[in-house]
Design a protein around this nucleic acid. Structure first.
Length: 488
RNA sequence: CGAGGUGUAGCGUAGUCCGGUUAGCGCACCUGCUUUGGGAGCAGGGGGUCGCAGGUUCAAAUCCUGCCACCUCGACCA
């Protein structure tokens, strides 16, 4: 393996795949577009997942599981929904293989009556079930989430950001009023923002999507949008108000208190393993990953420096109180006493893997009654007396968590520009960054800007001030103030 | 799916134009000794249907045809 990764500035996309493979987050699967999430990467996913799961449960959501296979006919029931997903579905057409001339072939005899699609998302199966479960307003709301894999047959794939199969969470709720459903969709967006900012240390913009960017089948899509290290935007999570679209498609009605019949109001919302892609691109540097302590599989790595087995034994004794302190504070730590590698090698390896704090302990430190530590978010080594470590490392981890967020926030803000000149707009987009500007609200303008600059409307912030604001392109009165950027 | 590029050991590559020793090198891996505070040294060793399938030829990594995979860029997308 070559040393280090391709520098970000040379080739951001090579850097990205280098980091993933060298930090052992993931590897390519045998089928095009598939990905193996390795233990180190999966551990990050588990941290993210646990936090979301806790917050969903705290807001009265429950988990369930719906099937991977969906009858093809279901997808066709909601017009926009089919259009959005039809082009990227894996379809099961047969149920058997057979050996023919020593070759394994599909048995034509086993052709299915109705073809089955592998879920690209689960609205349709879920609403087919909700039809059975909902009769009266007393059955509402239903607040179900599921943790699952979905398949979207993609042309161009990238590890974590876009793979044919990915892991996610999809919430599907049913409500008796429009207001309640909208409140739900927005409440979820707040959870998304909270977890992504406070656990993953990734600052996000919130708002809703333009007509062309919203979910196929939604009335309104709310989103969190983040800026990557190369100044491109990444949609990090979406929450949809679906109105009565799916209720009508699947004929899901309920009886109100007044004995009227009404269609149910719906939401759906999801975040995926794509978030790990964001994590890498927001925090990573030319040394590799930089993980926020809250999602780091290993928060502190201890590298002993020894010349003999006796030295090693002495170090193990010496660090015992340190480990006791870590245990008491539920710190995830790892003692790297591998014999064959030099300390320098280990330093580089753990930096590549983004471990927030590294501690080195050798005979020199034992003589000084000290340990040496360095933090991954900043340069430099620090010495601390072993007697005064109480409370030090939990604080340090909090500090690193905050510092990574602050660095990312600063980066995002300094690369977000307001302008009302289209020339400026084009320059900023070319150099990379977000542009905050007026938009006349028409599809045509959006399309033309996209053709011109490859930038799309990433989000329409909730709080609008469009008074005397002009559209960046048409120069007419702006209907919205929006964020434009090139996106992943 | 369109355009371009690349496929030689786990990774990175030389050799391909102009066919001809046992396909070479670096990293990684294994064994031993010496090492260990920023990617250790020496010695020995293992690992290859040269992307796949055909074809041309006395002879193919090398020439021809088809296919496949990956990368970059476009259209599509969480």
């Amino acid at each position: 393996m070559a040393k280090g990764v391709t520098p970000q500035s040379n080739d951001a996309s090579k850097w990205y795949t280098d980091v993933i493979t060298k930090a052992q987050l993931a590897d390519y699967g045998p089928v095009k577009g598939t990905m193996v999430i390795r233990p180190y990467g999966y551990s990050i996913w588990e941290s993210i997942k646990d936090e979301f799961d806790t917050q969903f449960k705290n807001t009265n959501h429950v988990n369930a599981y719906f099937p991977l296979f969906i009858p093809k006919s279901f997808l066709a029931k909601e017009a926009e929904h089919v259009e959005g997903f039809a082009k990227e579905c894996a379809v099961v057409t047969h149920s058997k293989l057979k050996v023919d001339n020593n070759k394994l072939v599909v048995d034509p005899e086993s052709k299915l009556e109705e073809e089955i699609i592998v879920r690209p998302t689960s609205e349709t199966v879920i609403w087919s079930m909700y039809k059975k479960w909902i009769n009266s307003y007393r059955d509402l709301p239903i607040l179900i989430n599921q943790w699952a894999n979905v398949v979207r047959w993609e042309m161009r794939t990238r590890l974590f950001l876009r793979t044919s199969e990915f892991l996610w969470q999809e919430g599907h709720t049913a409500h008796s009023t429009e207001d309640e459903a909208i409140v739900e969709a927005k409440k979820i967006l707040e959870i998304y923002q909270d977890v992504v900012e406070n656990i993953m240390a990734i600052p996000v913009l919130t708002g809703y999507k333009s007509e062309s960017e919203k979910f196929a089948g939604a009335v309104e899509t709310y989103c969190i949008e983040a800026m990557m290290g190369d100044k491109k935007a990444l949609q990090a999570g979406t929450s949809h108000y679906l109105g009565q679209n799916f209720a009508k498609a699947f004929d899901v009605k309920f009886q109100t208190e007044n004995n009227d019949e009404e269609y149910v109001y719906a939401t759906s919302w999801g975040v995926s393993t794509r978030l790990i892609g964001a994590l890498i691109m927001v925090h990573g540097d030319d040394q590799g990953l930089r993980l926020p302590p809250k999602v780091a599989p290993i928060q502190i790595v201890i590298v002993p420096i020894f010349k003999s087995d006796e030295d090693k034994e002495k170090i193990i004794d010496y660090v015992k109180p340190l480990f006791k302190e870590f245990d008491k504070n539920n710190i995830r730590y790892y003692f790297d006493d591998r014999n064959k590698m030099s300390p320098g090698f280990k330093f580089n390896e753990w930096e590549m893997k983004g471990v927030p704090i590294r501690i080195e302990v050798g005979m020199r430190d034992i003589n000084d009654d000290a340990i040496i530590y360095s933090r991954r978010d900043k340069q430099g080594k620090h010495k601390i007396e072993i007697g005064s470590i109480k409370g030090h490392f939990p604080n340090l981890l909090d500090d690193i968590q905050q510092s990574l967020f602050d660095q990312a926030k600063e980066f995002q803000e300094s690369n977000t520009h307001s302008t009302n000149s289209y020339d400026d707009f084009k320059n900023i987009i070319k150099k990379g960054g977000f542009v905050k500007c007026g938009w006349d609200g028409t599809n045509e303008t959006e399309e033309k800007i996209k053709k011109d600059t490859k930038a799309t409307i990433r989000c329409i912030p909730f709080n609008q001030d469009t008074e005397s604001l002009k559209c960046i392109y048409s120069d007419t009165q702006a209907k919205y103030q929006v964020i434009f950027a090139r996106a992943y």
